[in-house]
């Protein structure tokens, strides 16, 4: 059960603006705004003329065609879903923020039949993880340590590198199932 270096760990290759895209749709959270600003520095601001920016919290100080600030992640997800239903081929989706945010926005896109390989992602901000307890199925947000105690069923969970796009979560598995009470102390692994 204690296996490291698992291949389903997501890889975030960066927001690189696709020069062929007709429209650019950004979903950003927190420090994810910086990834957008870095793109402006790298390739100029032309792409902003055909960009829609959805952002949790403070909007970046740029002049995009359409900008909207959402109070929380669930509110942004709802708006993103409607945007994607109405979007045309040639629209490129860019996601940046924490892993939990990227995972949840990507899940909305997958549900609209968009192939995840066409989505550009960049991880910014905390490396804290969204973890699903494989036993009670409860999701715990912002997990910084392994093991950690499931916020729902209370089991001590090892955080595996195994990642599900569909659940937008890493897998948590009971660490002392074979010998209850022998869980090692939590170690901060995802600051």
């Amino acid at each position: 059960m204690l296996v490291q270096g698992i291949k389903s760990r997501p890889v975030y290759t960066g927001l690189d603006i696709d020069p062929n895209a007709r429209r650019h749709l950004f979903a950003l959270e927190g420090a994810g705004v910086e990834a957008l600003l870095d793109q402006v520095k790298a390739v100029g601001s032309d792409f902003l003329k055909s960009s829609d920016i959805l952002c949790v919290g403070q909007l970046p100080n740029v002049a995009a065609e359409d900008m909207w600030s959402a109070p929380t992640i669930p509110v942004l997800l709802n708006r993103l879903r409607v945007n994607l239903i109405n979007a045309k081929m040639g629209t490129r989706l860019y996601l940046s923020g924490t892993e939990g945010f990227i995972g949840q926005t990507m899940k909305v896109a997958l549900d609209q039949g968009i192939d995840f390989n066409s989505i550009r992602t960049e991880h910014r901000g905390s490396t804290a993880r969204r973890v699903q307890c494989v036993h009670c199925k409860g999701i715990t947000e912002s997990v910084k340590t392994s093991p950690f105690q499931c916020s729902h069923c209370g089991l001590n969970l090892l955080v595996r590198d195994h990642y599900s796009r569909r659940l937008a979560a890493f897998q948590g598995v009971c660490i002392d199932a074979e010998e209850p009470g022998t869980a090692p102390p939590p170690v901060e692994m995802f600051p």
Partner: peptide, 16 residues
Amino acid sequence: SLDFDIGMNFMEWHGP
């Protein structure tokens, strides 16, 4: 876990 692995590709579900 099927519930966890459903939707994964061949490399991903053999990840562990």
